[in-house]
Simulated scan of single mutants.
Amino acid sequence: MTTTNPALWLTLQANDAPALIDYYVETFGFVVSARHGDGDTVDHAQLNWPDGIGGIMLGSHRPGNAWSRQPGTAGGYVVTADPDALYERVLKRDADVVRPLSTTDYGAREFIVRDPEGNLWSFGDYPGEPARA
């Protein structure tokens, strides 16, 4: 099956979903593709990653729902073609850098940031290993 739409999404819940959406757009460069809800309640939002196919879906935390998870407990890895430029961007926005930009033992350029809700984000140029036939 060939598609141009992502088939795997990181999903998050937030105590302050509107603020987290703004943070992801301003600090990391995600692009809002959809946002549903009223006022400070976000029922569903889709943020696409501009470097390629993929993104996140998020909404306001609703304890007791079947899909409810504690905000601030997620982690994600995002592939970017230019981790150095993205690192400069997050530094200019006073992001909470957990691990500064560096080259790993396997040759990737990566850094880690904690978002305002506590989620960990690793950004780097490691695209993963190709799928085996």
Rank of each mutant, 00 (worst) to 15 (best):
residue 52 G to S: 06
residue 129 E to A: 12
residue 37 G to A: 05
residue 81 A to I: 00
residue 128 G to H: 13
residue 32 V to T: 14
residue 13 Q to H: 13
residue 40 D to T: 05
residue 108 A to G: 15
residue 10 L to N: 15
residue 37 G to Y: 09
residue 36 H to F: 14
residue 72 G to H: 08
residue 82 D to Q: 03
residue 75 G to R: 05
residue 71 P to K: 02
residue 62 R to S: 13
residue 63 P to I: 03
residue 20 L to E: 11
residue 133 A to G: 15
residue 87 Y to P: 01
residue 11 T to W: 11
residue 98 V to A: 07
residue 112 I to G: 06
residue 86 L to G: 02
residue 11 T to P: 03
residue 101 L to W: 09
residue 78 V to L: 11
residue 132 R to A: 15
residue 34 A to N: 04
residue 106 Y to A: 02
residue 39 G to M: 03
residue 28 F to M: 10
residue 58 L to A: 10
residue 75 G to C: 06
residue 86 L to Y: 03
residue 115 D to I: 10
residue 5 N to A: 14
residue 95 A to M: 07
residue 14 A to G: 03
residue 38 D to H: 09
residue 79 V to A: 00
residue 49 W to N: 05
residue 76 G to I: 08
residue 77 Y to F: 12
residue 36 H to P: 02
residue 130 P to K: 12
residue 49 W to H: 08
residue 23 Y to H: 13
residue 76 G to T: 07
residue 128 G to W: 14
residue 39 G to C: 06
residue 33 S to Y: 01
residue 125 D to V: 01
residue 37 G to D: 10
residue 36 H to L: 08
residue 29 G to T: 05
residue 82 D to A: 03
residue 79 V to I: 02
residue 9 W to S: 01
residue 88 E to G: 06
residue 64 G to W: 11
residue 91 L to N: 14
residue 82 D to T: 03
residue 13 Q to P: 09
residue 111 F to A: 05
residue 96 D to E: 10
residue 20 L to K: 03
residue 73 T to P: 02
residue 121 W to Q: 04
residue 80 T to Y: 01
residue 50 P to W: 11
residue 18 P to I: 05
residue 39 G to E: 08
residue 66 A to R: 05
residue 71 P to H: 08
residue 34 A to S: 07
residue 28 F to P: 04
residue 24 Y to M: 09
residue 11 T to M: 14
residue 94 D to V: 04
residue 40 D to V: 00
residue 20 L to R: 08
residue 111 F to M: 08
residue 92 K to W: 00
residue 16 D to W: 07
residue 133 A to C: 11
residue 73 T to Q: 02
residue 50 P to L: 09
residue 37 G to T: 05
residue 41 T to R: 13
residue 107 G to F: 14
residue 101 L to H: 08
residue 52 G to C: 06
residue 49 W to I: 02
residue 132 R to D: 14
residue 2 T to E: 12
residue 119 N to H: 15
residue 113 V to E: 15
residue 94 D to M: 04
residue 33 S to H: 08
residue 90 V to A: 10
residue 32 V to E: 13
residue 30 F to S: 02
residue 99 R to I: 11
residue 102 S to W: 07
residue 81 A to C: 00
residue 132 R to L: 14
residue 101 L to T: 01
residue 30 F to G: 00
residue 131 A to L: 15
residue 108 A to K: 10
residue 23 Y to F: 15
residue 47 L to K: 09
residue 22 D to Y: 04
residue 101 L to K: 04
residue 50 P to H: 10
residue 72 G to P: 08
residue 43 D to R: 12
residue 89 R to I: 01
residue 85 A to V: 04
residue 52 G to Y: 09
residue 78 V to H: 03
residue 37 G to R: 08
residue 88 E to W: 00
residue 81 A to D: 13
residue 50 P to S: 05
residue 125 D to R: 06
residue 30 F to A: 02
residue 63 P to V: 02
residue 26 E to R: 15
residue 104 T to C: 09
residue 110 E to I: 06
residue 119 N to P: 15
residue 40 D to R: 08
residue 91 L to F: 06
residue 43 D to S: 12
residue 19 A to S: 15
residue 49 W to Y: 06
residue 58 L to Y: 10
residue 72 G to Q: 10
residue 23 Y to T: 06
residue 91 L to P: 05
residue 91 L to Y: 07
residue 16 D to E: 11
residue 23 Y to K: 07
residue 87 Y to D: 01
residue 99 R to K: 14
residue 42 V to C: 09
residue 121 W to G: 02
residue 59 G to M: 14
residue 76 G to P: 03
residue 132 R to W: 14
residue 80 T to M: 00
residue 9 W to N: 03
residue 124 G to K: 08
